[in-house]
Amino acid sequence: MSNLTKRYGARVAVDDVSFEVGRGEVVGFLGPNGAGKTTTLRILAGVLGPTSGSVTVAGHDLVHASLEARRHIGYMPEAVPLYPEMRVVEYLRFRADLKQVGRSQRARFVDEAMDRAGVLEVAHRTIDHLSKGYRQRVGIADAIVAKPAVLVLDEPTAGLDPNQIRHARALVRELGREHTVVVSTHILSEVEACATRVLLIHHGRLVAQGSTSEIRAMRQAVAVDVTVRGNVAAADAALRSTPGVASVERVETVEPFARFRATFDGALSPEDRPGATERIVGVMVGAGLGVSEVRACGGSLEDVFAALTQDPGSPLG
């Protein structure tokens, strides 16, 4: 995908985005809501045409050899639209037929897709009567039914309960062994859970890309919340004297506990921050205070984006 741009009138939804995804990679497409993730994925799936730029899927140009290129893509939109009046197996047979799976292979491909997505037990139920979790899995079964080279999954865990999210992430990881997977999300921990590489998109622009471990390294804590029991004034003074702490603020006092937020010195390197946290706890215990809770703050997606946009010379930019 190179120099991709999509405009809606004067509004630019995707601005000059270029990236490449290799065989067998699971790429996480990460960005806040409205960043242009879905638009990019729709273009990648051949549903929308780009305003300019080109997309090549398995050697086929998505604009000029659209049908050929689309044969190699399995796409699941965010809302997982399905035909409610069809049974699961009927729907998947129709989709396999549409995706030009030969008659002789169709039943086998459908069975395999249902097995991998875990919808065999609802194969003969009407889609209308399925729960959100099953509908999501039927969507995944549809995406993989023709064994495409590239899977494009738009927020595959949206609207699922925590248990289903774990299943969905495991499934995405497993699909990555056979397919090239592009998966979008606005949750940082999600890409960490299932992607090997991460693309960060913000305001329609690709702001950074790197391996999952590189992104993880950027998730540094900006502050530490400590809850202590004892002399509040002494705790405040002890915290301020700790090396690496730039400012201290009392967040909350629920007798006999007081919660402080110690913000790190911005110059502190990511490697030194765990050490600073240990020092804080040491100092508090040394001052005779009871420490009941220590929690790292920050490291959210917003913080990563803030770090990236403030520091253009970041190693990932």
Partner: peptide, 8 residues
Amino acid sequence: ETLMSGPV
């Protein structure tokens, strides 16, 4: 959207 994403 799913319909048009197929080779149709």
